[in-house]
Design a protein around this nucleic acid. Sequence first.
DNA 1: ATGAAAGCGCTAACAG
DNA 2: CTGTTAGCGCTTTCAT
Lengths: 343, 343
Amino acid sequence: MSQLKRTTLRQVADHANVSPMTVSNFVNGRFELMTSEMREKVGRSVKALNYRRNYGAHLLRTSKLWSIGIIVVDASDHYLSDGYTTQIVSGISNTLNEKGFSTLLQGVKPSEFGTSNMFRNVQTDGMCVLLSGSDEQRAHQFDLIRELHQPTVLFLEEPDEASDAICAVMQNDYSAARTLTQHVLKRQPNSVLILTSGENEWAAVNQRVSGMRDEIRSNGSVGDLYIIPTGDGRQRDVIQVFDEHVSKHGHPDAIMCINDEIALATLKALKQAGVNVPEQTCVTGFNAFGLHDITDVTLTTMRSPAYEMGQTGAHELLRALEDGRFEQETIVMPIELVNGTSA
Amino acid sequence: MSQLKRTTLRQVADHANVSPMTVSNFVNGRFELMTSEMREKVGRSVKALNYRRNYGAHLLRTSKLWSIGIIVVDASDHYLSDGYTTQIVSGISNTLNEKGFSTLLQGVKPSEFGTSNMFRNVQTDGMCVLLSGSDEQRAHQFDLIRELHQPTVLFLEEPDEASDAICAVMQNDYSAARTLTQHVLKRQPNSVLILTSGENEWAAVNQRVSGMRDEIRSNGSVGDLYIIPTGDGRQRDVIQVFDEHVSKHGHPDAIMCINDEIALATLKALKQAGVNVPEQTCVTGFNAFGLHDITDVTLTTMRSPAYEMGQTGAHELLRALEDGRFEQETIVMPIELVNGTSA
DNA sequence: ATGAAAGCGCTAACAG
DNA sequence: CTGTTAGCGCTTTCAT
């Protein structure tokens, strides 16, 4: 351990018998300002003393933090458990790290937003945020973020108010949901069950449900539409909620789930109940993740490029850091239908 | 945007007509050093000027960064795609964030380790690392980490050399693999196929394979043992590798996969080939993840508490930060057998 | 091409 | 209780 004292620039300078300034130039790669022998001499001393610059002092002078905060709002402790979120985060952090930025990651519960130390002690040049929670909670989260006066990329939803310090990177969940629903409606179902997530409330999920509902309504041929949350979205909950629904209202002709995990659990519940898919009913997912085709009946779902979304957001943020403002308010990524055998 | 000039401590002091020191005390919550009217007066000025302290200057004086680096070494871009890793990371970051620490997350390829800016520009008080790569690569990674002279928690493997600046938090993969293998050997298989991961090389995986091999050898009743890597571990690769093996050597009596994802893909390949599980052959996984029971044949696998592992590691790190050294060199978390229907 | 001086914004230590 | 002094380690600016 021995945190002792780390080597300072001055110590290196003394060791090499040069001025601190020359060492500073060396450390910052300004080699054109010195002879090659000087460069070598200083290099030796730097290596010999295992010098690494003091981040705080450097920061005080340059006031560029080279660090971006990533905030993921999630109701559960396991804020990285969702494969989709996780891919976005990978895309962001890889892109930023490549450009020399550090990424400060923080998972936060909707109710605890604002008490997080990212707000008390700002140490970032910009922000990437994935919000969740009720509409009011998300609006509150959004306000706090604005007060930071940092360039911010908002993922998966649009800000209430536009601003040249904020950029939204999203997919068009509403329109994708309508597309998927059109596909399902070809089967002319009389009853449709929409299974949403429970604990977590994401703007994207609301958009999907709206899209499905609107498409069904405008089509007009569906008799019964049920929209039901599935507890914390885990398999056991989904199966229980589903079975309960069936015992009350019978088997629906089509089941649309707002994500793939819920869809897989539903497929399992149907299997256990001896209902054949896609003959007797059909099932759809959303946000195709790695295992959407692991079951023998593969999922019909929608896919959008989550990792690329992270990359895109990160790039925009870096550009905004340079230009002082975002060029675009909103960037919409494409979503495509993944044709499985489940619908 | 308008980064303009942020308010300084001195400006607040002038605004409130007090000395900078009093403002500093206020900002740092040392209220016992001032009268309540003074506290209010300063508080008003702080609020009015929207003062937030300069992180660099603060750092320069206090030299406590309040930030911990998390490095995940992974051969692919999607370093957060593995659910197990992801849970560990959640556990670490939640625990640290609660205690007021920031977490700097960085995914790094085995070959690029060391060029990462976490090494060039140390801005952390401690480290949490998940290594992967060949033995030499991991040894090299480990050396670089030691040179940082930071308290470090190493996950999922043991360091070559002990040190009071390093603590290993792991599960006993070797012994768990033997336990699981004993379970499989009850079926008295004549041929056993072990499917390992391909692209990524984790110490934990090597331990598992060793455990399986040793148990099988010491048992002595198995005729043929095949150990085969599965490309990048994705479904398509696994199925292809598996089918290829079968066409050469026929169907094995037991298939042990070093993780659940590979096991699920194998189940699918068997289904497609019309082989019944567990009647005609059996399949096991490892590191039970959320979907180990999503298929109709549920996986027999091993489970260990990944999230808790992250929590434990983070706690130890914080203790080490206070005490100047780790109390324990190694912490081993329990692993339990999850009895599914696949074996 | 190299060096000297000054000061970034804050807080520890001490003085009043 | 409040204020003054000094300096953390670095880099910008200007002089040599």
